[in-house]
Each structure stands twice: as structure tokens, then as C-alpha cells.
Design a protein around this nucleic acid. Structure first.
Lengths: 245, 245
DNA sequence: CCAAAAGTGTTATAAATACACCCATGT
DNA sequence: ACATGGGTGTATTTATAACACTTTTGG
């Protein structure tokens, strides 16, 4: 980002957003192989990547801000969003923007709200905005160097996701509308980080009654066409509200 | 609180604290009978109670702020503190302080970080500060009318506590240094809201290996003196870090 | 003696885990 | 033919729950 652009955006932010408060989104996406996180690379910031984040408008609810930021960054719309932690240490942005004036927006002390989001990999077109030189999916087990405490924010989000998956269904927002059983299983394995037994997974998933079997198959593979499923929205929501997985 | 005092504190807060950001503490204490929450009643605020809360100093980490606020309000020192959620809706403080000028600190739009704290009931002396007319323990199943969204913040904290107790040990900060097995069981029952089987509870607790049996008993009861225990700090910490309860 | 506490035994039930079998089907 | 997918059977282990019995002990 050019100095001029930074100064410009700084003025705008002071006028429109709540100071000292930011939102960082850990956006998880699944590409049928592995779990990925959406990351940005700022211009002029060497090799360091950054979480898509933003600020809360003065008349905007926190959750709405997270949704807006995510939409701006990824084009993703129907998403599962959850505030999972707050990061408010003093030293978390130490050493950044030191060469700028103290009234620069970005140089404030920030408390950031960590949101994690589950999005369908396919429905997302990473948007490279004015301040970024790159925006892309990165696999969670090969994260690049990251700015400030952003890597530990991701690890914290992943730990939360792994706890959640044990007693709440996951997948509604990480998979396309229609998907197959092996795809769902691979998603679970990617989140948990280990293999699951196929037969047991099948029975367990079926027992929770959150799937609708569609009357069609995914053609074109090299082998037997797998059956397509979609989530039963009502039962899925019901399962989300209980906590007994 | 007198108008004059409000105006005074307003000036001070603008100088020392981060705007738009507050902390509210749900302080749980156990009195051998039931689970209680520490609540305040503001002067001039009719029948409405409020959570002990405060603001984050400009050069103060979030967790430190929560600890400080709690110490000021309760005198409690060695406490278990945990940020459990953020409350950032627009309408959460709507209708308060409407009769004051817009530059009043308290009239800002606030995003509040909810912390829950577990404290030893005995070690706390509720402090009635300048702005409060009352400060006391209230049982969680008989909460009074509360200001803004504070009642739902408590319910959210309690739900979090009930989830936590299923896979992490609870009690280190809710019980005195030395305690008996029946006391620990009553604590669990108070948190969960239902009775547990004694024999099974005994075995389960023992299996987790977090208790040190002391070589003495609690004398003076009407019946057989129960054995005193304390927590084995190392193993307790280890159990906290795993997540397999 | 009585009531609470401590510790253990037993049994039923449910859940998790690991394997294995059979059938279907697209190339 | 064969690799993948769908569906089910089954045996083992582990966890949870309900209940009961015994012994100890303070008053």
C-alpha cells in the first residue's frame, strides 16, 4: 500500500469506525482435499501474510460487521460466522507502523475480535483489494509466515472448530449444496486431522438425521457413482442447538 | 449516583480508557448450597441490578483489565478468569442515559467483553463503591430484574460453564483451599442443576487424579468427619489443558 | 443407635472402535 | 477385473448410570 493510500484510509476510518476495535476473520474452506484458510498478503509487507479483517462501523452490530468484512474480502454470502475469542494483549501490534505518525488509524492499540467462518470453497472468489497484492487459500498445515499474532489466532480458531465438531454438526457451510458421503467424511477427517472408519462414520452421520438423500448420483468419476446428499436444514439446525454429539 | 459524579467520572474515563469498549464480569461463587452471581445495584436505578463491569485502560491488556475490575469490585485476587463471549449488538444499551448530553462517556455505543470468573465465596467481600447502593451474591435460579442485556449475559456465561464442566475440571477457584468430597459433589450439582450419584461421582473424580487426600478431617459436623482434600495443582492444570473429560 | 461418609461391587445400557462381509456399479 | 461406494453385521472395549452393600465414625 502506498503511503498516500494509508493516510487516506486512515482519515476515513477515524470518521466512520469505532477506534481501537478490529475484527479478524479466520475463514475456513474445504477443497475436497484439505482444510484451507483465506489469507491476504499486503503490498510492501515482504513475506508476511495477514488475516482478512476490518473495522466496526459506528452504527453497525458486531456480527454484521464481520459478515460485511467477509463479503468484501471473499464474495461469500451465506456463511457460518462465530466469534470465538478476543485478543486484547498490549503487545500484539507492537513494532508495526512505527515509522508513521501517531495519529495514523492503523497505529492505534487494537483489541481484535476473532471470528471464524465456514464457507463453501467453490462459492468464494478471493478478492484482491487495493491494499493487498495477493489473496488466496492456504492449507492449514502449511501456513506461511504471518503478521503479529495472526498465526496463533488461526491455531486458536482451529482448536475451537475441532472442539465444536465433536458435538455439533459441521459441513453445512463448508460443502456445496449437494455432496457425497465420502466428501463429507473427508471434510471431517480434514478438520480433525486423522482418518475415520468409513462404516462407523456412515452410521453416526445417518443417526443424527441431518442428511437428505437425493435421487441422483455424482456421475463422471472413475468408479461407482456416489449418491448425492444435501443437508436437511431443519434437523441440522435442531442438532446445532442441542449439545449432545 | 449523583449527576455531578457521573459527569466527573465521564471526564476521567475519556482520558484514561478505551472508548466504546467495556468489560462485564459474571462472577460465580459457591456457598456450599448453591451457585451465586455477584451483582450490583446502582443508586437511582430503581429495581434494576447490574453486572460488575468497567473499562479497559489505554495501556492495559484486556485480561489485566478484567482482573483489576474484579479485584476492585470483590476484593478477590486469585481467580479463574475467562473471556467467554462478546456482546456487540447496536441496541444493547438503547434507552439508557437518554436524558444526558451526547458527550457523556456512559452514553456511548459499547461493545462489551463478557468474562466469567470463578471465585471462592469465602474470600470475597462484596465492595459497595461510590456508584452503587448495594452489592451482593444472588442465587442463579432467583435472579432479580437486570439492566440492559445483563441477564442474558449471565445465562450465556452459565451455559458456557456447564459445557466446560463436562470436559474440564471445575472447582479449584470455587472452593476453599481444603474441602471435602461431599462439598465438591454439591458444587458440581449446583453448576449442573441436577443431582449426581455419589459412588459414581467419587470414582470419576478419583480417576482424574486431580485430588490430594489430606491427612485430616473436617471436625465438628453432626456425623462422621469427612476427609479433607485439596487440588493437586500440577495434575489439575494438566487436566485443564487436555480436553477429554 | 443413627446418619453421614468412604469405598467398593454389581449389573444394565449405551457409545465408540475395529473389522469384515456382501452387493452395486462405472470404466 | 477392479477400485470405489453403500450398507450392514458383529465382537470388543469403554463410559455412563443406577443401585446396593459394607465399614467407619461422631454425637
Amino acid at each position: 500500500m502506498q503511503i498516500k493510500e494509508i493516510i487516506e484510509s486512515s482519515k476515513r476510518h477515524w470518521e466512520t469506525a469505532l477506534p481501537h476495535l478490529s475484527i479478524d476473520c479466520v475463514v475456513f474452506g474445504f477443497d475436497q482435499q484439505q482444510l484451507n484458510v483465506l489469507l491476504l498478503k499486503l503490498k510492501d509487507n515482504a513475506e508476511n501474510w495477514i488475516l482478512p479483517g476490518g473495522y466496526v462501523l459506528k452504527k453497525e452490530a458486531l456480527d454484521d460487521a464481520a459478515r460485511r468484512i467477509l463479503k468484501e474480502r471473499s464474495g461469500a454470502d451465506k456463511i457460518f460466522l462465530n466469534a470465538f475469542n478476543v485478543f486484547g494483549d498490549l503487545n500484539r501490534s507492537e513494532g508495526y507502523f512505527t515509522e508513521y505518525d501517531d495519529d495514523l488509524w492503523h497505529k492505534q492499540r487494537f483489541v481484535t475480535i476473532g471470528y471464524y467462518a465456514l464457507v463453501d470453497h467453490e462459492s468464494v472468489t478471493p478478492v484482491i483489494d487495493a491494499s493487498s497484492e495477493d489473496c488466496r487459500w492456504m492449507p492449514i498445515d502449511e501456513l506461511p509466515e504471518m503478521v503479529m499474532d495472526h498465526k496463533s489466532i488461526i491455531e486458536n480458531a482451529l482448536a475451537t472448530l475441532r472442539e465444536q465438531i465433536r458435538y455439533k454438526p459441521i459441513g453445512y457451510n463448508l460443502l456445496p449444496e449437494e455432496f457425497t458421503m465420502p466428501e463429507l467424511q473427508r471434510l471431517y477427517e480434514a478438520v480433525l486431522g486423522y482418518k475415520l472408519n468409513r462404516g462407523n462414520f456412515y452410521r453416526r452421520i445417518m443417526r443424527y438425521n441431518i442428511l437428505k438423500k437425493l435421487d441422483k448420483e455424482r456421475k463422471g468419476g472413475a468408479h461407482k457413482s456416489p449418491i448425492l446428499y444435501s443437508f436437511d436444514k431443519d434437523n441440522y439446525q435442531k442438532a446445532l442447538n442441542e449439545f449432545s454429539w
